[in-house]
Amino acid sequence: MLQTDESRAGAWRELRRKVDAADPAERESLIADQARIIRRHIITTIDAARAGHIGGDLSITDVLATLYFGVLRLDPSEGDRLERDRFILSKGHCAAALYSTLARVGYFAEDELASFMAAGSALNGHPNRNKVPGIETNTGPLGHGLPVAVGEAIGLRLQGVDSRVFVATGDGELQEGSNWEALMSAGHYGLENLTVIVDRNRLQQGAGTEETNGLDPLPERLAAFGCEVREVDGHSVAELLAAFGPSTTGKPVAVVANTTKGKGVSFIEDRVEWHHKVPTAEQVALALEELA
């Protein structure tokens, strides 16, 4: 199990306090800056491993930065505390984005990112809670995170704990039927402590989602399953912060975060071939320049 980086965790706590105290414009700018740093870490992490899922990593980054720097009530030094908010990355192939975020929060040292997918590393290609602090459940096969999140939301409510559970799925991932089983339960149980975030970048591994097995009209479908649906720009920190507010209807919240796969690097954006392509040394330099 990797160890907490106390110095990084301290810096994160200070930044959280600053974000909480800031006016909306400053808050947005502080979080967006963390997202930029996380994107840089994603690029260097994938470069070091010469592997990873760069497109989906970059599309979910603003969601991760907004959650960990502006929303979630948790602390890397109290990883087992029952009264913590929980986040599950169901699209586990985007582990590099999650690791870069968790390291930024201080769950482990940022130096460790260089070991991503190396032999014997804790940082497997898909997240493992038994080796990496801050991971709630092991994901990788698609359609697993949402049912577990539903169980956590029921479990917290049963124990009278008012913490919240957030889970992020890919949009292509919603083609797995287990998600819809879980959404039925979330609606049936009225899990207002659950927020489902869909990274709606409209691309999956081989083609567009709508060409492959269409999800539209996605907001209507989610609403029909009993969710309070909020459709936002998934790269707007301000819109995400608003969307991550508590349920107002007693229903689970579903946030459709409209995103661009590969966001932030011009030549990767919205291109299906960049699902898990690895940039060349020259492309890495270009990407880091764009994210400077």
Binding site: L82, T137, V148, V150, G151, L158, S185
Partner: peptide, 10 residues
């Protein structure tokens, strides 16, 4: 999956 989540809350 729900059972795993319940266990994750103790």
């Amino acid at each position: 999956g729900v059972a795993a989540g319940l266990a994750a809350t103790g």
